[in-house]
Computed example of a mutant assay.
Amino acid sequence: MKGRLLSGLCIAAAVLGIAGCNQNPYLAGPATYPQPTSSFGPVISQQGVNPNDSRMAELNRRVQLLDDNNRQLHTQLAQSEQQAQVYREELNLVRKQLADTNQQLEAASIAAREAQNKVRGFQASTQMRGGASIQPNTNLSRLASQLNLGGLPVQQDGDRIRIAIPSDQLFAPGTAQLIQQSAQVLDPVAAQLRSLFPRQRIGIEGYTDNVPATAGGSAASHQLASAQASAVLDMLTRRAGMPLGQFFIVAQGANRPVQPNASAAGRAANRRIELVIYPETF
């Protein structure tokens, strides 16, 4: 009995000894320690890489790339604008050259028409009609003395007679538009021409001052002179019933001024229509 009790006590002591050993911290298994943390998130070890840093680096790279592309586009745009400006300047130069060429062509055309009209007038005495040569009228001076044109100047010019009519009495300033009183000026002139010079060739010469009618310069002055002479021709033939074949027109423009253009009175005197009566008949 005593032997069994001692045996039980030994077993109990052994069990307690084992249990006590398991509770000993020095005999426990490998320890685990908590990871340090901060308020900004987990602390990365020296060997690790933060994913946020990688994303930020990628975004910075893309922003830099966009900035580079933007600078290139601005550079290309500036170059395109400079090229467009060059093209515009070249186009304006071509337009100016074309306008100058057109003015020169117009002036040459007017000069050609003037020369043709002058030739027709000078050749009137040699024209043949009905097989006989038309002879000049040698009584122009005597007939011219019978003209009574209400103050319009009549001048002998070699074998021709010139009747000067101020353009300001016929046209609106700077135009070929006849004013209302022009008929009062031209009707008496037409009546006496029909009476005294029914067969004489008559040139209608248009003159201007030296002030260009428009930006076209001398070409514009010749155009204005030609248009005014044509308007007088229309009045003499349509309104007064004189033969169209009796007349020809010459646009003199600012040529042959009768007074200096330095004053308003001189320019007004130079703006005129001259009816030139030739000794040749038609």
Rank of each mutant, 00 (worst) to 15 (best):
L93V: 08
Q85K: 13
T126I: 15
G130D: 15
I44T: 07
F40E: 15
R4G: 07
T208L: 06
T175Q: 07
L196E: 02
V43S: 05
V189I: 06
P136C: 03
G20Y: 13
T281K: 11
A12G: 03
R95S: 11
N69Y: 04
N52M: 11
G29I: 07
Q169E: 03
L275M: 05
S167D: 11
N139S: 08
E205W: 04
P34F: 02
R4V: 11
I277E: 00
I277D: 00
R194Q: 15
A227C: 04
A213E: 09
F171E: 02
R267E: 12
Q155P: 09
A231K: 01
T101S: 01
P36K: 03
Y278M: 04
Q181M: 05
P51S: 07
V49L: 13
N139C: 05
L59R: 07
I165G: 03
G253D: 08
E106N: 15
A240V: 08
I18Q: 10
S45D: 14
L233A: 00
Q246K: 01
L6R: 15
G17N: 01
G41Q: 02
Q35V: 02
Q246E: 01
G20N: 05
N92P: 06
C10V: 10
A262P: 04
M56Y: 02
M242H: 02
F171D: 02
A78M: 04
R194L: 05
L140W: 03
Q181E: 06
I249T: 14
A269P: 02
Y33Q: 05
D168F: 04
I11D: 00
S195Y: 14
A220L: 03
E89V: 13
D187P: 08
P25F: 04
R129A: 09
Q180P: 01
A172G: 09
Q135M: 11
Q246G: 00
Q116S: 13
L178V: 07
D68Y: 08
Y278G: 02
L147W: 05
P243Y: 00
A213N: 08
M128Q: 12
P243H: 00
T138K: 14
Q127K: 15
I44M: 13
R239D: 12
K118C: 05
Q64N: 15
D67R: 13
S109F: 11
P34R: 10
P42K: 12
E106Y: 09
N102V: 02
R238Q: 12
T32V: 04
I165C: 04
I179E: 02
L93A: 10
Q259I: 05
P212H: 00
R142M: 15
T126L: 12
F171C: 01
I18K: 02
V258L: 14
Q79G: 05
A112W: 12
N50G: 14
G253L: 12
Y207K: 00
A172W: 07
Q97T: 06
T281C: 04
L91G: 09
Y33D: 03
G48R: 14
Q72R: 13
F247M: 05
Q123K: 10
P212S: 03
I110S: 13
A78V: 02
G17Q: 00
Q85V: 06
A57L: 05
